[in-house]
Amino acid sequence: TTVEVQGVEYRFDNPEEAEKFAKKMAKSLNLRVELHGNKWRVE
């Protein structure tokens, strides 16, 4: 599972970890998070 934060990609073996990371990043950067296939995008 991939998390893309403002163009930078982070890879996770565990989808739940990816989701937690994406939501945490979105909250700290005041952005929103969307799931596209198996990629979380924070923008």
Results as ranks from 00 to 15, higher is better:
residue 33 V to N: 03
residue 23 K to S: 06
residue 39 K to W: 05
residue 37 G to C: 15
residue 26 A to E: 03
residue 24 K to L: 13
residue 26 A to R: 02
residue 28 S to C: 15
residue 32 R to Q: 11
residue 26 A to M: 03
residue 29 L to K: 05
residue 42 V to Y: 03
residue 32 R to V: 11
residue 7 G to E: 03
residue 8 V to R: 11
residue 22 A to I: 04
residue 23 K to C: 15
residue 14 N to S: 12
residue 34 E to H: 13
residue 1 T to W: 15
residue 10 Y to L: 04
residue 33 V to S: 06
residue 19 E to Q: 06
residue 30 N to F: 05
residue 10 Y to Q: 02
residue 24 K to V: 10
residue 30 N to L: 05
residue 16 E to I: 12
residue 39 K to H: 09
residue 28 S to Q: 14
residue 32 R to L: 09
residue 32 R to E: 08
residue 41 R to W: 12
residue 26 A to D: 01
residue 20 K to N: 10
residue 41 R to A: 07
residue 13 D to K: 09
residue 27 K to Y: 11
residue 32 R to P: 10
residue 33 V to K: 02
residue 34 E to M: 11
residue 5 V to W: 06
residue 20 K to L: 13
residue 9 E to K: 07
residue 15 P to C: 15
residue 14 N to T: 12
residue 29 L to F: 05
residue 7 G to W: 04
residue 30 N to W: 04
residue 36 H to K: 10
residue 21 F to H: 02
residue 7 G to A: 03
residue 37 G to L: 06
residue 23 K to N: 08
residue 17 E to L: 09
residue 31 L to I: 05
residue 5 V to P: 00
residue 11 R to A: 09
residue 22 A to G: 02
residue 26 A to T: 01
residue 38 N to G: 13
residue 28 S to R: 14
residue 19 E to W: 10
residue 8 V to K: 11
residue 40 W to Q: 03
residue 17 E to P: 02
residue 14 N to A: 08
residue 6 Q to D: 08
residue 37 G to K: 06
residue 19 E to T: 04
residue 15 P to Q: 07
residue 15 P to H: 07
residue 24 K to A: 14
residue 34 E to N: 09
residue 38 N to I: 04
residue 5 V to Y: 08
residue 1 T to F: 15
residue 13 D to F: 08
residue 8 V to T: 08
residue 5 V to L: 10
residue 9 E to S: 10
residue 9 E to W: 06
residue 8 V to W: 07
residue 32 R to C: 15
residue 30 N to G: 14
residue 16 E to A: 12
residue 29 L to H: 05
residue 30 N to A: 05
residue 32 R to I: 10
residue 29 L to N: 04
residue 31 L to N: 03
residue 42 V to K: 01
residue 29 L to Q: 04
residue 43 E to G: 15
residue 15 P to K: 07
residue 33 V to M: 12
residue 12 F to T: 00
residue 1 T to L: 10
residue 6 Q to L: 15
residue 31 L to Y: 06
residue 23 K to I: 12
residue 37 G to D: 11
residue 43 E to R: 10
residue 3 V to P: 00
residue 26 A to N: 01
residue 40 W to L: 06
residue 40 W to M: 04
residue 25 M to L: 10
residue 37 G to S: 05
residue 20 K to P: 02
residue 6 Q to F: 14
residue 35 L to E: 04
residue 39 K to P: 01
residue 20 K to M: 12
residue 21 F to S: 00
residue 14 N to Q: 08
residue 31 L to W: 05
residue 42 V to G: 03
residue 41 R to C: 15
residue 12 F to Q: 00
residue 38 N to F: 05
residue 26 A to Q: 02
residue 12 F to L: 03
residue 11 R to G: 05
residue 43 E to Y: 15
residue 19 E to D: 03
residue 37 G to A: 05
residue 36 H to Q: 11
residue 17 E to Q: 08
residue 22 A to R: 01
residue 8 V to I: 12
residue 14 N to C: 15
residue 21 F to V: 01
residue 25 M to Q: 05
residue 33 V to D: 02
residue 5 V to T: 02
residue 33 V to F: 13
residue 14 N to L: 09
residue 23 K to L: 11
residue 8 V to N: 06
residue 14 N to E: 09
residue 14 N to F: 08
residue 1 T to N: 10
residue 23 K to V: 09
residue 10 Y to W: 09
residue 2 T to A: 09
residue 36 H to I: 14
residue 21 F to I: 01
residue 2 T to Q: 07
residue 32 R to G: 09
residue 31 L to P: 01
residue 7 G to I: 02
residue 40 W to K: 02
residue 27 K to M: 13
residue 30 N to I: 03
residue 38 N to K: 07
residue 16 E to L: 12
residue 19 E to Y: 11
residue 32 R to W: 07
residue 20 K to R: 12
residue 20 K to V: 11
residue 4 E to T: 11
residue 3 V to Y: 01
residue 28 S to V: 13
residue 24 K to T: 13
residue 4 E to K: 05
residue 21 F to Y: 06
residue 30 N to P: 01
residue 27 K to F: 11
residue 42 V to A: 04
residue 6 Q to G: 09
residue 21 F to D: 00
residue 11 R to T: 11
residue 26 A to F: 02
residue 43 E to L: 14
residue 27 K to P: 01
residue 13 D to E: 12
residue 10 Y to A: 01
residue 10 Y to P: 00
residue 28 S to L: 15
residue 17 E to S: 08
residue 43 E to Q: 11
residue 20 K to Q: 12
residue 3 V to D: 01
residue 31 L to T: 06
residue 41 R to V: 15
residue 35 L to K: 13
residue 18 A to W: 01
residue 33 V to A: 15
residue 29 L to G: 04
residue 16 E to F: 11
residue 34 E to K: 10
residue 4 E to V: 14
residue 24 K to S: 13
residue 6 Q to I: 10
residue 8 V to G: 03
residue 35 L to V: 08
residue 37 G to N: 10
residue 27 K to E: 14
residue 3 V to C: 14
residue 9 E to N: 07
residue 26 A to G: 11
